[in-house]
C-alpha cells in the first residue's frame, strides 16, 4: 500500500492539477468549505423561518426542511442536474451542480442546529433585550443569534465533517474529487482495488476525525466558558439531530 501512496499521492491530493483542473482531496476540501460558507447564512434564514409566527413563512420553511431532509442527497443531485440548467438557461458544470445540492442539503440540516441553539437559549436573554428596548430583529441579531451560534459551534463543525463525507457523491456525477480520483487510480492499477479503496477510506478517516476532534475540543472549551449558565448542549441532544450522513 505504501508504494501506491508514494507513487500516486499527487493524483489523490490534487487530481490532475496543475495539468488539469483541481481535483482529489484539494477539491473535496474546496467543495466542503464553499458549501459550509454558502449554506450557513441560508440555514439561519431557514431557522428563523421555522421559528416565525407568520404562518406562510413558517409553513414554507418547514416544508423545505422536511422535503430536503426526507430526500436522499443523490436524488437531490439529480434534481439539481435537471433544474439548474432550466433556471440558468445554460449548461451547468457538475462542480456547480454538486455544490448547489450540497448547499441546499446542508442548509436544511444546519437550520435544525441553529434552531435548536436559539430555542435552548434561556428566555431571560430575549426578555432582557426586549426590556431594554431592542426590537425583535435587533434582539435576534445582537443578542440571540451570537449566543446560539457560539453554543452550537461544535455541532456546526460536526456538520462540516458530514459535508466532507457528502462530497464523495461527486463520484456519481464525475466531479473529480477524492473518491473519483481513487476510482480513477483503481482503473489504472486494476489489480489492487483493496489497497486503493483502503487508502481512500483511511484518507477520509484522517481528515474527518481531525475535524470531529476539533469539534470535541470546542465543545469542552465552550462548556467551560458557559459554566454557571443553564444551557449545556448535551452530547445526546447533539448527536440526535445533526448527523446528516
Amino acid at each position: 500500500m505504501w508504494d501506491i501512496i508514494q507513487n500516486h499521492y499527487q493524483l489523490l491530493l490534487l487530481g490532475t492539477f496543475p495539468q488539469g483542473p483541481l481535483g482529489g482531496l484539494a477539491l473535496t476540501l474546496v467543495l466542503s468549505i464553499l458549501g459550509l460558507c454558502i449554506s450557513f447564512p441560508l440555514s439561519i434564514l431557514l431557522a428563523l423561518g421555522r421559528l416565525s409566527k407568520f404562518p406562510p413563512v413558517y409553513y414554507l420553511a418547514t416544508t423545505i426542511v422536511y422535503v430536503v431532509r426526507g430526500t436522499p442527497l443523490l436524488m437531490l443531485i439529480f434534481w439539481s442536474y435537471f433544474l439548474l440548467p432550466l433556471l440558468i438557461g445554460n449548461t451547468v458544470n457538475p462542480f456547480v451542480t454538486l455544490l448547489c445540492s450540497l448547499v441546499i442539503y446542508e442548509a436544511a440540516y444546519l437550520s435544525e442546529v441553529v434552531r435548536a441553539g436559539i430555542v435552548a437559549l434561556p428566555p431571560g436573554q430575549a426578555e432582557a433585550a426586549r426590556a431594554l428596548g431592542f426590537g425583535r430583529a435587533k434582539t435576534m441579531i445582537y443578542i440571540v443569534l451570537p449566543q446560539a451560534i457560539y453554543n452550537m459551534l461544535p455541532s456546526i463543525v460536526s456538520q462540516f465533517a458530514s459535508l466532507i463525507k457528502e462530497t464523495s457523491l461527486g463520484y456519481v456525477i464525475s466531479v473529480h474529487e477524492l473518491t473519483s480520483a481513487a476510482n480513477r487510480l483503481n482503473s489504472e492499477l486494476l489489480t489492487k482495488p483493496f489497497e486503493v479503496f483502503a487508502i481512500l477510506a483511511l484518507t477520509y478517516f484522517l481528515v474527518c476525525s481531525t475535524v470531529t476532534f476539533i469539534a470535541h475540543v470546542l465543545e469542552r472549551r465552550i462548556a467551560k466558558r458557559r459554566q454557571g449558565q443553564s444551557i449545556t448542549p448535551s452530547r445526546v441532544h447533539r448527536d440526535q439531530i445533526y448527523e446528516s450522513q
Binding site: 434561556p122 431571560g124 436573554q125 426578555e127 432582557a128 433585550a129 426590556a131 449566543q147 458557559r226
Partner: peptide, 9 residues
C-alpha cells in the same frame, strides 16, 4: 430581573 439576565457574550 431576578435572574439578572446579563448577556454572557
Amino acid at each position: 430581573f431576578q435572574q439578572f439576565n446579563l448577556f454572557p457574550h
